[in-house]
Nucleic acid binder design. Structure first.
Lengths: 261, 261
DNA sequence: TCAAAAGTGTTTCCGTTACACCCATGT
DNA sequence: ACATGGGTGTAACGGAAACACTTTTGA
């Protein structure tokens, strides 16, 4: 018995059924922010290989289906969101190493999506689904009850790439806006940036740029906590736009973002 | 007769032979600098579809071949380079729209590579090959004798993505180093940055950063032109590394780099 | 009245920019 | 000598960083 939980006979049966030709799949890394932490949507596999193991949502691209359409379909199915028009969905990379799927050659085109947790929770009822759940991330690794959660196939590697890409983008785009609810405070937005970035930003500079350069528009409302109420803002745009990069510690790019496998 | 130059009967024959399953290809955009201009390697197709039309080098991924290995193979075949260890080769995106190949469903994983033109010219004898040649780029469009060269399949779109990505990277990485010969002057390096970037950089700031932050090491040699000889440098690393982005005019990201098709 | 988070004014710092100038060479 | 491109010194500029401060609320 191997990691994927199929016997040699089962593997042989699959290979015979599928033949030698490659199969093309579309997988999606769906990120959100829950209580100030980055979370990713995983599903628990119901059938071998990797039965009962958690994996990224995905499936085979249909005969006349566009790759992006396949990713959209997966996103809609797993999040329950009806209108995906304003959801960020980007192609990440393609993974096609021989042997990544015991059943045969599977080439996975992986997409990433950023959603507002509040919005998804409203539709799906939060993380209650038995077989689809958001998991917190510790670096690149999803956690369940504080322990690293092993993933099916090469999805750990895929997820690592996705997180790296997201981090990279946050440095110089409005990506985190897509993770926010309809309205939010500047402190919350900064927290989102910092969470994804993994490092702190300077409050003064952050506020000046975000508000001063018009990335957000005040709604006029405020939200009171126990203290002085914060002004609420709305994103000027839900789309991905470039901004001047945030000053930051140096990074090493090569490791992950260079070449999809 | 359609753009691809195959009759309905020929198309039907291919479809019957291939069946419904997808085919996976690896294509490569090989960029270089020739006389201060960005050039891309194209091959002229010898067989239908798109016979005699120019296209990106590429081919089908073999049964147990890794995607990157397939791209490497294409790169080696087309450039004649033996040691590819120090050549930049990165996955760009995957293109898999139904109908992009009249023969059936072809999903193309596209890679980009940056090579030193001098190095390739030494091996291949420059742009003399009958069926493989470097073409200058005007924006995203390859030129032949000053006129836009039409490309096979969706390769115009693919190339546009590749150029955009290259431009984007140049802003904050050492990517242009991979386009330089073994030794070069600071003025030449700056010209490479400016060519790819499409905008000018400030000489004073450029030299200070490139030399001051140790991105290059002086060889001690100089190269005399008609004027004061310039010092020669060697790249500290041939790998891709991040640097602080060059100050620059604002850009719009969405258009091309968002989602591979 | 106090704690805590929101929000602002001001100064320092540092890299970019601009501009002027010197340097080395071929003609 | 001088034109030309390589290369450097220096001051002005502007955004980021640092710090201190005020504001507003609930407890």
């Amino acid at each position: 018995m191997t990691a994927h939980g199929m016997s040699a006979a089962e593997v042989a049966a699959w290979r015979a059924r599928w033949g030698e030709g490659p199969h093309v799949a579309a997988d999606v890394c769906i990120f959100a922010l829950r209580e100030g932490r980055l979370v990713v949507l995983l599903i628990q596999r119901g059938i071998p290989p990797y039965r009962d193991t958690w994996a990224l949502p995905g499936g085979f691209v249909q005969r006349d289906e566009d790759l992006l359409a396949a990713a959209r379909r997966e996103l809609a199915e797993e999040t329950g969101l009806a209108d995906l028009d304003d959801v960020q969905i980007d192609q990440l990379a393609t993974f096609g190493a021989p042997g990544r799927d015991p059943r045969g050659r599977v080439v996975s085109v992986v997409y990433t999506a950023l959603v507002s947790y509040e919005r998804v929770a409203k539709v799906k009822g939060g993380d209650d689904a038995a077989d689809a759940r958001f998991f917190e991330l510790d670096g690149h690794v999803p956690l369940r009850e504080g322990r690293a959660l092993p993933l099916a196939f090469d999805h750990a590697e895929v997820l690592a790439h996705a997180v790296e890409r997201l981090r990279g983008r946050v440095t110089y785009t409005t990506a985190p806006f897509a993770l926010m609810p309809e309205t939010f405070t500047l402190a919350e937005l900064q927290a989102a940036y910092e969470t994804v970035l993994g490092s702190e930003l300077h409050r003064r500079a952050f506020r000046e740029r975000i508000e001063g350069e018009g990335w957000v528009v005040p709604t006029g409302e405020t939200r009171g906590g126990r203290h002085r109420p914060a002004r609420l803002f709305r994103a000027r745009t839900r789309g991905l736009e470039w901004m001047r990069p945030w000053p930051e510690a140096k990074k090493v790019p090569g490791a992950l973002s260079r070449e999809g496998r």
